[in-house]
Amino acid sequence: MTMEAIDDSAFPARPVSNRVGGPGWFRRHLGSIVKHGVINLFMVIIILPLLWVLLLSVKSRPDAAQGRFWPTSFDFTRYTYVFERIDTFPLNLWNSIYVTTGTVLITCLCAVLAGYALVHLKPKGGAFIIIVLLVSLYLPIRVVSIISIYEIQNWLGLINVTSGLILPYVTLNLAISILIMRSMFQLVPHQMMEAATMDGAGPWKTLWLVGLPMVRNGLVVIFIVNFVTAWGEYLLCTTLTNDQTARTMPVVLAAAQGGLGQWSWPALAAVYVIVVTPGIIAFAFAQKLFFKGLTEGMLKG
């Protein structure tokens, strides 16, 4: 509401109406109040569950048991406790980190190469590939194909092998990543690429030196999208691995029951906060590029 007042100060002809509570102020700003009220209600609904789990992680045990929203005392020791006392926690966290890193790097590489080739090298059959990719976005096959993915992984000897998860993970967002990169490369003018080729640069060099810097925003988008998917994947991980030590952190967390000892509620919440933070931090850093890439990609596709 103060922001609205600032907005209105651009019109000095009505100085009285700026003051909150002035005559007729409420009626004149009713629409704006309702608008911001509704928006902020939604904002609170989005933030509240996350705030709750953040506060839970620093609550004392009695506070957590009583279900008081704001803790009476803050206790940050949980964050060291979970590293020392939950035996599989460092292992699971490490699994999450390297599986996600591997997946993101491979998918981004595949998508950049494919997107560049589809737009600027114009392969025969490129249109066919694009149609196949588009159709695959709408085909409801993720659930059904788990049956044969299990078989493939077993055949490759990758059941219960954490790094083996990277292979099926790459395909989860591969189609959409390629399509996003394709629409980003379409924004790069052909003349630029041709000029680089004229100067004697091969397709690889052109891509690396000219193309890549221009599709940075799209790269940020597919990086985040793939990160989020791989970091939180459940179905494949729970099906293709059996031991808790081979699983990623979110999957172990999903099976954990809140109770006493190492799995007490505040300890669980601390694990949660540790696992959820990387994504939010990555997003916070890349936020501007992410929005740019998202709108550029969406308006094209």
Binding site: A114, A117, P123, S148, L174
Partner: peptide, 24 residues
């Protein structure tokens, strides 16, 4: 040459998306 660029994506796509459909 374009297919060298497409190859990694195509391998993953066939191996873990196209083949499983037909296998299932």
């Amino acid at each position: 040459s374009p297919w060298w660029f497409l190859l990694p994506a195509v391998i993953f796509f066939i191996g873990y998306q196209a083949y499983p459909i037909f296998r299932v």
